[in-house]
Amino acid sequence: MQGDRRCRVTVGNERRLAGGISRGRRVGLVVDGDAVTAFEGESVAAALLAAGRRGLRATPRRGDRRGMYCGIGLCFECVTVVDGQSGVRACLTPVREGMRIGTGQDGRGYPDADADAGVDADADAGADVDAGAGRGGAR
């Protein structure tokens, strides 16, 4: 294969380039239930690509696999479920330690039913939950 083989480095996988920069800390992600290693500063899309995962979601109508396309946050092809929240653009979102990512395999591309996403499942009418405030913020 042509190209500068010296510039590639094995960091658990061969897709990360070594030349020109050194990476920061490793972070651990959970992607569709599997443990995946990434580096701080990488976008979710880049980290998944480096781990050999290009399909990021399944389309609602036909279930076609889609992946990153424009890379600049305008096409919305790369939207994945991140920590229970759907519609997160993988190309713009930096990875974080412990991030849970769902790419729609086996119909799991939706917000987790039991994620801590504000569902006051056990709250009763008198509970102190400000249901109108959105995610974690006060009005």
Binding site: G84, S86, G87, P111, A117, G118, V119, D120, G132
Partner: peptide, 15 residues
């Protein structure tokens, strides 16, 4: 949006 989130809290996370 506020009305929706009040009625169905998990919608806060939805795009």
């Amino acid at each position: 949006a506020a009305g929706a989130v009040r009625a169905v809290p998990q919608l806060a996370q939805v795009r």
